[in-house]
């Protein structure tokens, strides 16, 4: 998953709660200020599901296919975020801000 912003963003917003596609993009817009294109968003959802990082929500009664993050997805997201935090800290230190 490393280096794929769309997958990372989807996992990040799904970590809070199960959402359907449009709501995922709305949450991403609230987080970053811009929406993902439909191709990027649903490509990321398909790839994350094929890797077992997200799955259809079993309690889903919405026609719009709500998905939730899996345990494997949480572990992957945590590992990615920790690595990003280490990189961010190193960068800030090098710039003299930390």
């Amino acid at each position: 998953m490393r280096g794929n912003d769309a997958q990372m963003l989807v996992l990040t917003v799904l970590a809070a709660e199960p959402l359907h596609g449009y709501a995922i993009n709305t949450a991403i817009e609230a987080l970053t200020g811009s929406r993902l294109g439909a191709g990027s968003l649903y490509g990321a959802l398909a790839r994350l599901e094929s890797h077992g990082l997200i799955e259809p929500d079993s309690a889903d009664t919405d026609e719009r296919r709500t998905v939730r993050i899996t345990d494997a997805g949480r572990n992957t997201l945590r590992a990615e975020l920790e690595q990003m935090a280490r990189v961010a800290q190193a960068g800030l230190r090098a710039l003299g801000f930390a």
Binding site: H20, G21, N25, G37, A38, G39, S40, L41, A46, R64
Partner: peptide, 27 residues
């Protein structure tokens, strides 16, 4: 995801057309 993609494209308008087509090609 068909209905969700159509909804997203419908709301985003022409600026999302290229990204949607490229996404389809990638898939």
């Amino acid at each position: 995801w068909g209905s969700a993609i159509a909804e997203e494209v419908g709301r985003a308008g022409p600026r999302s057309w290229l990204n949607s087509a490229i996404g389809a090609g990638r898939l």
